[in-house]
Every structure is written in C-alpha cells, then in structure tokens.
C-alpha cells in the first residue's frame, strides 16, 4: 500500500484527490435530492460528511458505492472519468462502504467475516491458515489490541469490536477509499475512541476516508476536512482547523452560509 506522508489536521495540501465529484445531481421523480454537489476525498485524509436528516448524505454515498448511480455530474477517480454504475465498478475502483448495520455474519468468526465473498482457496478448499495469518496481520497493522483471537465468533464481540472488524475488512481488501456510515453511532465512550483511533490509522496507511456522522465532537477529533450538505447542496467544504463547532452547526441548520466554498 502506498504510504503518503500524514499531514497535520488542517494543513492545506496540494495532493490530487482520489475522488473528485463535480456537479452531482440526483432526483427521485420530482424531488431533486442532490442539486449539483462537489466533493473531494484525499488519500491519507479523513473527510467528514455532515448534514441534517434529508440533506442527501445517503444518496451521495449510495452513488459512490454504485448502488444508486447519479443522474448527472462528473466522477473523477485519480483524475480519470469513471461511471460508478454498479457496486462491482465501485469495488473495482477500491471504494468500500462500511454500513451502519455493519453487514457482518454473527455466526461466523472474524477471519470468515473479513474474507467473506473472496475466500482464499487451495486445492479447491478454503485455506483457513493463510486467511488467519492475513487477517491477523491486517488487524495488527491497524494496532487493534482488543481482539483476543481471530477465530472468535462475531456474536461474542462488543459493538466496538464489530465495527473494528468491519473497518479492518475494508483495509484487508486494500480499499483506497473507505466510506464509514455513522461508525460510532451505537458505541460507548471508550469504544468510540478505539474506533476513531482505528480510522486515523487507516488514513495513515494512505486510505482516503469519508465519515458520515452526526457527532461533531468525533468530527473535530479525527477529521481533516468537513463537508456540509444542506438540502442537497454542499454549503461548506473546509479544513477542520479553519472552522468551529458553532460554524458547522450553522451550516448544517442553514443558519449560516459559507462564503467562498473552498477549492
């Protein structure tokens, strides 16, 4: 995996974004959900996507995941025009989404979940040992310490550990962009800290991370950029260091507007 130098929160960089969305539009019948949205995701950076319910966050994400393609607008991946027409295309371009409900099988163990759908085979049978080693190495590279055994069943894991497994799965897939849908919504304080640490380490490995969150404390703790959607329009895209909690709340509720949307 390409290692890119970690940049301190807020420092403006000159890197090429992995993903650049320009003038994205999406309508459901007469309802225009996305009205010309721009978004950039940088390698090695954590970007937040915030906005009130109905702002269009989910629609934006589903488009990136290829589940619900956009109506119009341009998607540049590494500067190349790409049509995200299906989940397969998104996955092929290294985009992974970790959904809120985690999409893990509780009856399977950590290794089986991390490799689900792309198991390593040898002589036509599952190569458990190799998968075990790779899963263990991936968890260790993310400094995951809370998991005792990679052969534990997911049903025996806590919410934070499950989120960890789900995120580690995207790292194992060598994802270049990981989109996390409310990763800390159901977690306690300690577990939230663990997951945010993990997100940071994932970005440190050069992955572009996009977090959807309602929790601005999390956003200010871990993110490099914050993007605010308001009624289908990206009203602000700013480095976290250049804004404040109350400003962001203002953008989310529409009470404030950001003049000179960056980039």
């Amino acid at each position: 995996m390409v290692r890119l130098g970690r940049l301190k929160n807020g420092s403006v960089d000159v890197e090429v974004p992995i993903i650049e969305l320009t003038d994205i539009r999406k309508s459901f019948g007469p309802v225009e959900v996305l009205k010309g949205v721009n978004l950039k995701i940088y390698p090695g950076k954590v970007s937040a996507l915030v906005g009130d319910n109905g702002a269009g966050k989910s629609t934006l994400i589903k488009g990136l995941a290829g589940v619900q393609p956009y109506d119009s607008g341009e998607v540049l991946i590494d500067g190349t025009h790409t049509d995200l027409t299906s989940p397969k295309v998104a996955t092929a371009n290294g985009i992974e989404v970790v959904y809120q409900d985690l999409s893990l099988c509780e009856n399977l163990d950590i290794v089986q979940n991390m490799f689900l759908g792309r198991e390593e085979l040898r002589h036509g049978t599952i190569d458990g040992g190799r998968m075990e080693r790779e899963a263990s190495a991936t968890l260790q590279s993310l400094s995951v310490k809370t998991v005792k055994s990679v052969r534990q069943k997911v049903s025996s894991l806590s919410g934070g550990q499950r989120q960890t497994v789900a995120i580690a799965r995207s790292a194992l897939k060598k994802a270049r962009v990981v989109i996390l849908d409310e990763p800390t919504a159901a977690l306690g304080v300690a577990q939230t800290a663990q997951v945010l640490d993990l997100v940071r380490r994932l970005a440190d490995q050069g992955v572009g991370v996009l977090i959807i969150s309602h929790n601005l404390v999390d956003v200010f703790q871990v993110c490099d950029y914050v993007n605010v959607l308001y009624l289908g329009t990206m009203v602000a895209s700013v480095p976290v260091a250049e804004t404040s909690n109350s400003d962001v709340i203002g953008y989310i509720t529409g009470a404030k507007t950001y003049q000179g949307v960056s980039q």
Partner: peptide
C-alpha cells in the same frame, strides 16, 4: 461457508458479493 453466511445474515452475505 456461504451457506452458513446466508443463514447468519442474508444481507451481509449479499453485500459481500455472495
């Protein structure tokens, strides 16, 4: 393995490309 996965969570199995 996929049989167990579908039994555990059909949605997770579908998202994993099964």
């Amino acid at each position: 393995l996929h049989l167990y996965a579908v039994g555990g969570s059909p949605e997770a199995a579908r998202r994993a490309g099964i």
